[in-house]
Simulated scan of single mutants.
Amino acid sequence: MPLTDTAIRNAKPKDKAYKVADSQGLYLLVNPGGSKLWRVKYRINGTERKLSLGAYPEITLAEARTARDAARKQLAHAVDPNAAKRQARIEASIRAGNTFASVADELIEKKGREGRTAATLEKQRWLLKLLGQDFGKRPVADITPQELLHELKKHERRGRLETAKQLRAFAGQVFRYAAATARAERDPAQLLQGALISPTVKHFAAITDTAQFGALLRAIDDYQGDPAVMYALKLTPHVFQRPGEIRQMEWVEIDFNKAVWTIPEAKMKMRQPHVVPLSKQALALLREMRGLSGTGRYVFPSVRTKARPISDNTVNAALRRMGYSKDQMTAHGFRTSASSLLNESGKWNPDAIERALAHMVPGIIRRIYNQSAYWAERVEMAQWWSNHLDQMKDIEIQ
């Protein structure tokens, strides 16, 4: 006779455990301690097995019957319910171990082994931290688009539109890596395209007026402070490479005899090595700096320790102390200034200028051609540009 809730409640413990049968193999095991446990008896391959379904009243009679029916359906397809339950438990354990944070850490470590710059890896660790501990502890396969959007909207509400955009892109990388390594089936971040407010594109502030740029160069010559910062400021206009590449410049990268600075691909944004011709003025500045830091690794070491270069905001901070606001000039702005003034001169092939700036040109064949065809022009341009910088210092603002 099938069980009822009343019969279950009236089943009292005895000196020994006993069973109260329901139907189709389902029964309730009443233990001497008072616990009441659901079990299903079944046979597979001629062997009798028992499947645990949980305890009453946490698992109701109706829920126990539903679980029994599900087990019988598995048996109909030659699946052992106990084996399926064990596999589900293993998969749940794996999902719990494969949290978003653990997968993200693994991805960042992989990128480090592939040669990504320290600055890139540091930025990604910062983005992971911004997503929060609670989000990071969630199994990566269980995170929904709504859950990710909730985290991104927190930053959007605070006006951090660019941060929210970067977080979505980073999360997408993690989800795609999880999918590629069989730990997730989809990328929830991809479904959120268009869900966030697009940030207004901001360009790095730069001075492109010849007279005003000359005034800036005079101010740099007059700047007093840590020698590493002083010389980094003076060298930056001559080589006009990215601030991170300049601050991480190492002495082994400088060939004084050939007058070149070779930046390894690990430090380059475009992941390709870049060779910079050095003018006589640039070489003179580096020789002066070699007398100050030549025994160490970095050309521009930190004031705190020679084991690290100056920080990524040091040159910008120096510009602020010189009276230039972030809306007037930035460390990255020297690239814009050089690009604008070199193109404005009309003396140089635009492709040679783009190559000097280490901008990626489309097409593998064109990139190979640009690396060789414009070298002589770039060497000549580097010297002309340094001479032009000296001339600009003499131009007074009207």
Rank of each mutant, 00 (worst) to 15 (best):
L285F: 02
S279L: 05
V275F: 08
V275C: 10
R290F: 09
L285W: 03
R304K: 14
F256M: 04
V299P: 10
Y298L: 09
K280M: 03
E288N: 01
R290C: 05
K269I: 14
T305A: 13
A232F: 07
E265R: 13
P243Q: 02
Y298C: 07
L278I: 02
M268G: 05
K258F: 03
D255A: 06
A307V: 04
D255E: 04
A259C: 04
N257H: 03
V229T: 15
I246V: 15
G294Q: 10
R242V: 10
V260C: 06
Q281L: 05
L278T: 01
G296T: 11
A307C: 04
H238P: 00
R242G: 07
G244W: 09
M268P: 04
I263C: 14
R290A: 12
E245W: 08
K280C: 00
P237Q: 02
V303P: 00
R242S: 14
L235R: 04
Q272D: 07
M249R: 03
M270Y: 12
F256N: 02
S279D: 03
V275M: 15
M268A: 11
H274F: 08
R242M: 10
V229I: 15
R271P: 06
M249P: 01
L285R: 02
F300R: 00
H238E: 08
P273F: 12
L233C: 04
T295M: 11
P309M: 09
R297I: 10
I263D: 11
K234H: 07
R297C: 03
E253K: 12
G244R: 00
V276S: 05
P309I: 09
A282D: 00
Y231A: 06
A284V: 03
Q241V: 15
G294F: 05
L285A: 00
Q272W: 09
Y231C: 04
V260K: 06
H238S: 00
R308K: 15
I254W: 00
Q241W: 07
P309H: 11
V252Q: 13
F256A: 06
Y231H: 12
P301L: 07
L233I: 09
G296C: 02
P264D: 13
P277I: 02
R297L: 07
M268E: 05
H274V: 01
W261P: 01
S302H: 11
R247D: 00
Q281M: 05
V252H: 11
Q241N: 15
P264Y: 13
R247L: 06
P264V: 11
R287D: 06
T262G: 08
M289G: 00
F256G: 01
K267Q: 15
S293N: 11
Q241K: 04
P273G: 08
A282G: 00
M270F: 13
P237M: 01
M249I: 02
T305I: 11
K234E: 12
G244L: 09
S293T: 14
P277W: 03
T262Q: 13
A284K: 01
T236I: 11
G244F: 12
G291N: 10
R297T: 09
K280D: 00
R290W: 08
V303Y: 10
Q281G: 05
K234Q: 15
E265P: 07
R242L: 07
T262H: 13
P301V: 06
L233H: 07
H238Y: 03
I246G: 08
P277Q: 02
T295C: 10
L285C: 01
V303H: 12
L285N: 00
R247V: 03
